[in-house]
């Protein structure tokens, strides 16, 4: 039997017949997962960087292990490990406390997994950026009698941003692309939605090209945004040459 394939104009439309609305929601889910994972990753990275710079030797060793492991193992392997281990572990915990096992929200699982991988990279980016802040500025802040939180919030944080933004911009571009890996464990983000649309319509080339273009637009818009952001955080700095 030959499958009746709808005309192209129908498949590339919004609504029941077409896949464009699905792709649009997929793109939104990709942005959502990336953004939340990125925020989580930056938070972990900030904790990690501060821990690596001023923690005790135990904290330093644990963080060293975390950043080395998570940067040496392929993202795909990590995502599967954390996803399966995380969902399984949580359910076993629930069962042992006498609760019913739950279906874990896929979006949250994806955010958690990507954020954890991202955290290892942003730890290193932020650590290097904090180290680039001239010691004299921190000493001056100390001399004013600022608490260590005030020193961080008022001096270290704004002074390190020019060094951190290029690295953080790269990490954002990476997470938007790494979020496609979530498709392997099944989810509703762009890569998986595209796979479903391509398989359903048999228009593989059209849909994968379309998805590529959507990712490309996300990347290019992000590039512009980070270029603007870098100009902004550098506004007080002396221009080179």
């Amino acid at each position: 039997m030959i499958l009746a394939v709808a005309p192209l104009s129908d498949l590339l439309s919004f609504g029941n017949k077409g896949y464009l609305d699905e792709l649009m929601w997929g793109a939104i889910a990709t942005l959502e997962i990336s953004f939340l994972g990125y925020a989580f990753g930056c938070f972990l990275g900030l904790l990690g960087a501060v821990g690596k710079l001023s923690g005790g030797s135990l904290v330093k060793n644990i963080l060293g292990g975390y950043t080395t492991l998570f940067r040496a193992i392929p993202e795909l392997v990590l995502i599967m490990l954390i996803y399966y281990a995380g969902t399984n572990g949580l359910n076993q915990l629930l069962i042992s406390f006498g609760f019913e096992p739950i279906q874990i929200n896929q979006l949250l699982a994806a955010v958690f997994v990507l954020g954890f991988v991202q955290g290892a990279y942003s730890t290193e980016v932020l650590r290097a950026a904090i180290l680039a802040v001239p010691v004299g500025q921190v000493e001056a802040a100390k001399a004013y009698g600022m608490t260590s939180y005030q020193q961080f919030r008022r001096v270290v944080l704004p002074a390190m941003l020019p060094y951190a933004i290029p690295g953080l911009a790269n990490l954002w571009l990476n997470i938007t692309k790494d979020s496609a890996l979530i498709a392997v464990i099944g989810s509703s983000e762009l890569a998986n939605v595209t796979r479903i649309a391509a398989g359903g319509s048999k228009l593989y080339l059209v849909f994968y090209l379309l998805a590529a273009v959507i990712y490309l637009v996300i990347s290019m818009v992000s590039d512009q945004f980070f270029a603007w952001l870098e100009r902004r955080v550098r506004r007080g700095q002396r221009k080179l040459a």
Binding site: T176, A191, T194, Y208, A212
Partner: peptide, 23 residues
Amino acid sequence: CTFIRGTPLLIQLWLLYYGVGSL
């Protein structure tokens, strides 16, 4: 370079294998 660096490798791979391969 912009295309390669701006799109996920997974999509590039599937574009070649499923997309071009289907032709």
